[in-house]
Write a protein that binds this DNA or RNA. Structure first.
Lengths: 154, 154
DNA sequence: TACAATTTGATTGCGTGCAATTGAATTTTG
DNA sequence: CAAAATTCAATTGCACGCAATCAAATTGTA
């Protein structure tokens, strides 16, 4: 009695592990593509935003990547140490730190051009499939964040 | 020309980020459920296996969780320090380390009983939806690992 | 039995990821 | 304008996660 329900509920655990281990698999798939660029995957995510906009605050990066300053500050310092970005206080609000690309950082965009295509091939999926799974994951993420964050809809 | 293709290919990047950020969201959803048990999510994964089998080698844990000894050894030492598991060399092959539950480790199973149900509710998904997404993610993971691992199916 | 190759776990070093705290700058409020 | 509340980044401490390396045990082979 209830045994079937118990087994069914374990599916949530299994789905979480599937997400968890797929994230690791993505990381490993990116590694050989990003190593030649001298970037880790989270660093690459930051560079993608900067290649699109060039000047972004730490807060904005944190909002878009869902990461806090405890993660971003040291990551950005490493990008700075590698000569890819600069960090300076905003003139209008000195609490803000503006991250911007250096010439080397901008130049890296060209070298990274092949990455999305190679990743696409590595997934073995169709564009429709990619798009659908992305939507489903973002919907799930929304549910999860609203469930433990009192500010959410749930 | 090719612009549409370029945009389309970025979907792979976006899917990866969706997986990446959903994994973080799962972690945060688990945290309030696992904190009272004194477990982190990776530690919970190890305990799930042990609650099912009790005696497992480090190699077997690594195979099932897709983690290596660099991650598992310190994690298992923390579980041991917290009195939940024991670690001993196998008698038949002293290279192997057998991880087993203590009485406290076995007792924790009962306290963890509510976790899967609460997680299931947090996903807001149907059992069919959970099952389908899990299958799709595992298929994707298989593609990704075979793409950069020469030992795979190609 | 010797000796090389393999298996297994431990260690080291580096880079996230996050909760909690701190401190400076800004905004709000009386 | 001055005090309180808020915002923002930095810092600290802890726990993964992984590549590379090491050491011990086992297996294969002559």
């Amino acid at each position: 009695m209830g045994k079937q329900k118990d087994e069914a509920r374990k599916l949530a655990n299994q789905l979480c592990f599937a997400v968890y281990s797929t994230a690791h698999a993505f990381n490993k798939a990116y590694k050989p593509l990003l190593d030649p660029l001298g970037l880790t995957y989270p660093q690459y995510l930051v560079m993608l935003i900067l290649w699109d906009e060039d000047e972004v605050t730490v807060k904005e990066l944190g909002h878009r990547l869902q990461l806090d300053s405890g993660t971003l500050t040291p990551l950005l310092k490493r990008l700075e140490a590698n000569g890819l970005v600069t960090r300076r206080r905003s003139e209008v609000d000195e609490r803000r730190v503006v991250v911007a690309l250096t010439a080397a950082g901008k130049a890296l965009d060209a070298k990274a051009g092949e990455v999305p295509h190679k990743l696409f091939c590595a997934t073995g999926m169709t564009l429709e499939g990619l798009n659908r799974m992305r939507e489903e994951l973002l919907a799930l993420r929304g549910e999860l964040t609203s469930s433990h964050d009192p500010g959410g809809a749930g």
